[in-house]
Design a protein around this nucleic acid. Structure first.
Lengths: 233, 233
DNA sequence: GGGGTTAGTTGCACAATTCAACGAAGTGTA
DNA sequence: TACACTTCGTTGAATTGTGCAACTAACCCC
């Protein structure tokens, strides 16, 4: 273990009150498969800045309310969307002086949620005119999105695709119980290509990610399918 | 118990809500292979809180100096370690009311850097008593680390191992030029298991990640080895 | 009962990875 | 000089994994 002598250049202990701190927000990229396509939930802003523009739903960090970043994201999601969802994942943080005209420096911690499409009824929440599902490719290409949110959507999509590619199941997209056909179709829509049925099932079996629900079958127009659920581990 | 309030610039449509913002810092997990083991660079704190304790080198976000989070991380690295390194990667953000006794709510954005061990010779920086390499397992297990930094180290290690697992090369660990044997050995030390030489080389060739430096050979006690460098892409 | 559709399995060709061995090229030593 | 020893780099066989296609099963509908 190598030690180096203390070299003091100048400044004293940083006093938290001496430095202005960034305007800190949480943004939530709620994604789902709607009409067979990967879509993201956008909110039309009711107020300036970017009034009338579409943005990711989000909100200001409240240090008096939030016990952690994760808790803050859950609170924002509850307030804006009326949802209380698991599978929230922190994606990244973005910060800079030009991100938000309201502040000299704005920092956003971005979370991602995957939900079954039915879960969200596009209805207005606090300070939101409207909610709508939007195809992710459109949202990424749309220069009219508020703030730097089209970049943030792009990052959310990339990381989600990468997860499915290595067969981290996009479990949030499906309800608690599902058939293997539904699971496979969900992955295929995300990746934009077909997967082989036998090897898909082989991999699932090897990794023991799901387990059949005894006796439960999904009936329909054709042969019934075994219903599965996530294995607790 | 009032933290620095969000300072508003003039804005056409003022946000009526003013919230106290979190004490925002950058922490850098500089990792390297020292003596064949994965180690992390820790700094002994010269001042309270946690004076005398070991912590990740870090610093306060300066909205007057930093054009982005990445730039802030580079500045902190320069100030604390006298280094200006590429391969800085944002890992995650952590936040909460009990993370730092100086502030009612502290947020840290954590970055990771991989460096060749030799790089960190000019060890000197602001407000740091000493710098030392520490085995990552020790740092993670050590409850005496300042703040929540042993948790942060743990996350840095996990994500680095996962990257190497999918053959994102830990290029930072090696100097600009290296032999394939050195590269493989570096990955093996990170993963803690031996890799197969032929398939390691085959994957490298397939992905065209490295290219030989014509005519350059590493000579030594045994057969000389071709020297490689990263391919620009 | 027959046609159509989806569920679930099986066999096989092919690709990828692992394991083991080999020759090449240097040093050190008798 | 001969030989042991080490690492480099490649090659081939054995094992494993993947993609493709066929097949059976179970249901609905007509």
């Amino acid at each position: 273990m190598q030690l180096t002598p203390f070299v003091k250049t100048e400044s004293p202990n940083p006093d938290p009150k001496r430095y202005p701190m960034p305007f800190t927000r949480l943004e939530i990229a709620v994604m789902s498969l709607v009409d067979g396509e990967l879509q993201v939930l956008l909110a039309r802003r009711a107020e300036a800045p970017y009034a009338g523009k579409w943005a990711l739903p989000g909100g200001v960090l409240r240090i008096d309310l939030d016990a952690s970043l994760d808790a803050a994201a859950r609170r924002v999601m509850r307030e804006r969307l009326g949802l209380d969802l698991p599978f929230l994942r922190q994606l990244c943080a973005a910060g800079g002086p030009t991100r938000d005209p309201r502040a000299p420096w704005a920092l956003s911690v971005v979370y991602r949620a995957l939900v079954p499409a039915e879960t969200v009824n596009p209805l207005a929440g606090k300070r939101i005119e409207a909610l709508a599902w939007r195809r992710v490719d459109d949202a990424i290409a749309d220069r009219g999105l508020a703030f730097d949110h089209s970049t943030l959507v792009s990052r959310a999509v990339e990381s989600t695709r990468a997860e499915v590619e290595r067969l981290d199941l996009p479990v949030g997209f499906l309800p608690e119980q599902f058939t293997l056909g539904e699971l496979q179709s969900c992955c295929e829509q995300l990746l934009g290509r077909r997967l082989d049925k036998s090897s898909f099932r082989r991999r699932l079996a090897d990794r023991q990610l799901v387990e059949p629900v005894e006796g439960a079958m999904r009936t329909g127009a054709n042969r019934p399918a075994q219903i599965y659920r996530l294995r607790a581990d």
